[in-house]
Design a protein around this nucleic acid. Structure first.
Lengths: 187, 187
DNA sequence: GTCTATAGGTGGATAGAC
DNA sequence: GTCTATCCACCTATAGAC
């Protein structure tokens, strides 16, 4: 599943195959089908696993930091790690391919997106209540805007082959929210 | 090419085939190969055509409006049209698939992205000089942030099947720049 | 659980008749 | 320019031996 996840995040769900995984593991495609009967099943399990580990990471951020600024810096740091690995966010990649996904995969993906956004909206709501961040509109709106910006900017930065571009733009986004970005705090 | 463009924008470049186009046109795959020797060639021509028509539309906006607010509203209106057609921006879809594209397609795509962003940066720079919009940082940074947010939010809205979500979030983005959004002005 | 072997389908692409 | 026919590579998936 680690291999499959990396392949999906790099090339997309429609552009990788059982053969790719099999080759990297030195086993046969048939063996893979024993563990994952169909590609859709593999994809669904991939999303659910990603969902769980991602939420664990988000909860860890919530518990280990005390204010919105620190939380956002660590949150953005998660994204930066992925990009530095020349990957896309699994969620963003699958969202682009959404119209070609099976029903189970769509449901799993949507569920993940909802919970991810709810977490970020919570951070923004609490942050605003305590005067740590400033923004207009609802916390849900700003969370949607931030995730969209992160996904889109990541896609563009990868195509431009300019990681710095992502850093520059996201720093600007945080700045607009009244949150300073210290590179040291993340890496 | 219209059919091919629609298919790519809906499903992605890796998820459509000559057979799909042929079926819709009631001709054979072989006939298509007469006009487009390879899929990469078709893809490259698709990008270049999109590039040209998109830039024409942007230039029209520049000439037919006098301030940044009106330009941004019309610009966002272009995006909304695409989304209402249940499509992705061709550029965003291909950016997601970037690592699987041929060299000619990558070059064509990059060229388009650069000019697109340059246009938007120009709008923002002029707008700020005239006091029509407010933002921090360089015009290039804010243009990159805006395009990233538009691409990403569009992707998410399509996966959520909520066009309203895109409208809501983008209205918030324009609001943050000091630009009001009147639905009437676009539709 | 992993293998060999293979089915049944689709992908992009080509040869050659009309 | 479009067709029929075909090639070969690859895809997901299955059957059955070990």
């Amino acid at each position: 599943m680690d291999i499959a996840e990396a392949l999906v995040a790099q090339r997309g769900f429609n552009a990788f195959s059982y053969a790719d995984i099999a080759a990297e593991m030195n086993i046969t495609k048939a063996s893979l089908h024993y563990h994952f009967a169909s590609k859709s099943e593999l994809g669904t399990k991939l999303i659910n696993r990603y969902h769980e580990t991602f939420m664990v990471a988000l909860e860890a951020i919530s518990h280990e930091t005390a204010n919105a600024g620190a939380r956002l810096r660590r949150y953005v740091g998660l994204w930066l790690e992925v990009l530095r690995d020349d990957r896309m966010c699994l969620c963003g990649m699958l969202a682009a391919e959404y119209s070609t996904l099976s029903a189970p995969m769509r449901i799993a993906l949507k569920s993940f997106m909802v919970r991810h956004e709810a977490w970020l909206a919570g951070v923004m709501r609490d942050g605003r209540d305590r005067g740590e961040v400033t923004f207009e509109g609802t916390a849900e709106e700003i969370a949607g805007l931030m995730i969209g910006a992160l996904e889109g900017t990541m896609m563009m930065a990868r195509a431009h082959n300019e990681i710095d571009r992502f850093v520059l733009i996201i720093r600007r986004m945080l700045g607009g929210l009244g949150v300073a970005w210290e590179e040291e705090a993340v890496s």
